[in-house]
Amino acid sequence: MNIFRLAGDMTHLFSVLVLLLKIHTIKSCAGISLKTQELYAIVFTTRYLDLFTTYISLYNTIMKLIFLGSSISIVWYMRHHKVVRRSYDKDQDTFRHYLLMLPCLLLALLINEKFTFLEVMWAFSLYLEAVAILPQLVLLQRTRNIDNLTGQYVLLLGAYRALYVLNWIYRYFTEENYVHWITWVSGIVQTLLYADFFYYYFQSWKNNVKLQLPA
């Protein structure tokens, strides 16, 4: 495992921790899109079906279980916890996320590495992950005040994606037969979706003003 991959996994882990911190200690999910969180829960459930079929490493298994468990518990908290759910911006979080799932499924049926159930689900999870952040970005744009933890959460997620792109470049040049078009294209699309947010985040950081996205 190279440094970019490890750093990518760690920023992903931190992003989840930041979100759990917000939910557990502040008992708030204000500014967090339940739609995006539901999509992530589906992404990890469909991608990590290979937990039952393939053993890669202890690290791999533990990380998969963490991402599965945390994404499902975040959805549970936002929907059912009696305090946390009251802070959910339901009226602002109106992105029709289920409409993203059908095109991703069709694409996965058409473009996959092998036409088997696990491979189609794996491709589906990659396509869906690429667009899963959209409801969150729309919600950020609508929310007047973006609090620090929410901003950091999205920043860490974006950093995780960018580091994965560096990891692929590194692996391409150092490993033989390392070519994965499906992962790369959907991963690059996903990273580009963060570009706009990055721009405004660093502007606000540089000028030392509160993060606000233009309407």
Partner: peptide, 10 residues
């Protein structure tokens, strides 16, 4: 094997 390589990522 080729199939395995992508699956070692999260």
């Amino acid at each position: 094997p080729k199939d395995q390589a992508a699956k070692d990522e999260l």
